[in-house]
Structures are given as C-alpha cells and as structure tokens.
Simulated assay, not measured.
Amino acid sequence: MVFLHGTSGHLEAFARNIAAHAAYDVHAIDMLGHGYTGKPARPYEIADYVGHLIDYLDAVGVERAHIVGESLGGWVGVRTATTHPDRVASLQLLCAGGTVANPAIMERIRTSTLAAVRSDDIELTRKRLRLLMADPADATDELVEVRHAIYHEPDFVANVHNLLSLQDMERRRRNLLTREELGRITQPTLIIWGRQNPFGEVPEATAMHKHIPGSRLELFDQCGHWPQHEQSERYNRISLDFLTSVSAA
C-alpha cells in the first residue's frame, strides 16, 4: 500500500492509519516537493508527481501497489492508474482533487498555505490545518507542531510556490481529470468523501462515482477534508474490508 497526501502536506496525514494496515507492506511517502522529499526548482504538474511515484516504486522494488490518495494524492493516484495501469492494484480516493477548477477554493489553498509558511506564528499553521477538519480538535497540537516545523524548513519556504503551482488556473486546467479518463480506470476503486469537505462539494464525489466503472462511494457525515484522520476507525474498517474484497476477486 502507498499512501499519498494532499497539497502542502506530507505523510503525517496518515498517522492514524498506518498501524491499522500493518498486515500490508505500507509506504507513506512525502511526494515531490513536499515534506522532506527533494524539491526541484520548477512548478510541479501531475505528471511530475506520477513520475516521482513510479521512480519510488522502482527504487523500493514494488511492482504493483494499492494506492490510497487524499486530495492531491487522489489526483495523482488516478493519473497513475490510467497511465501506468500495471502498477496499480486498487485505488482509494479520499476527497480527491483534480476534477474541477474552483477559483475561490484554489485561492483559499494558496493564501492559507502562504500565510502559514511566511510567518513564524504557529497559530497560522494551526489555522491552515483546522481548515481541513470539521472538528477543529482533530488538528492536534502534535500535527500542528510537525507541520509548522516542515513549513519553516528553508528549502520548503524557498519552494512553496512550486508546490502551489496547480492553484494557477491555466496550469490546473491542463492537468484536470476528464470524464473519459475516469472512465478508463479498470482497477477496483473506493471513493470516500466528507460532507463538510471545505475543498470540494459532494457532487464532485458523486460525479467521480458515476464515471469510474464499478466504483464504490462512502459519504462521511460530520467530516471535512481528511476522512482517514477525522474518522480513522471507520475509515480503517472500510479500507480493510475493501482491500480484502480486492484480494478475493
């Protein structure tokens, strides 16, 4: 299993999920330009993230993986599944991005991230994390401290505009997932969405479900943009049941 996080995040997004999936060979990685992974000095597009993921799988000797992608990670997961179908065993799309270009949401992501990165005030990092959650208490002190430390690494500060590049309208539009691409997904696919997701409304999830053949959709009440964290016990149970069904097929 490979867990892929969202824009400006890192593998901490799956802190409540890794142990529950210990029966699998679990990899939670910082994607290109994020966390403690290398940060090439160029704007990142989806093909760059896919290339990084494939290079990672090659480097660790993994031929085929179950991909779990949250937000940006789901966008990358879909594109990997359609361009490298032999490398993806199944898909889990957790509040996945990449099907729409909403200027207000794009600006919210950009401004909240830049505010947290450009200031030493840890409360701005807390505000950025709370934006993801239906219940602010889920943005724990530990999450805030870890994210704040990464946000203030010199190479992260210098590179932040590159990892926010998909919030540029022209670049985002040329990377969007189309209905036709979703229709080419052949892997078993589980879609999970929070009804209070601040970065995407429920119709985005139902549209994905409609266009991905044989997909399964689960909507979480009282949940924002991190269902795997906000309702980890429920998510872990559903994920493990899904993986069991994939293995049995």
Rank of each mutant, 00 (worst) to 15 (best):
A28S: 06
Q167I: 01
G6V: 02
L124W: 03
E123M: 04
D48K: 05
N175F: 15
N159C: 11
L32E: 06
M31Q: 10
Q228C: 07
V78F: 10
D25L: 08
A22Y: 07
N197I: 02
G6W: 04
D135G: 05
A139H: 05
L11Q: 06
M31D: 05
H66N: 14
D120C: 08
I54A: 07
Q228I: 04
Q92C: 14
L11T: 07
H225G: 07
Y49F: 11
Y36E: 15
S215W: 06
P203N: 10
E204N: 11
P188Y: 11
V50C: 13
V157E: 09
Q228D: 01
I46L: 12
G61N: 00
H34L: 00
I238L: 15
L132Q: 09
V117T: 10
G61M: 00
G33Y: 00
I191C: 13
S90W: 06
M133K: 10
C223S: 03
M106D: 13
G35S: 06
I29N: 01
I185C: 15
F220M: 13
V100P: 00
W75C: 03
L32Q: 05
D138E: 12
W75V: 04
L124Y: 06
L4D: 00
L11K: 07
E201F: 14
N159F: 05
L243Y: 15
R118D: 10
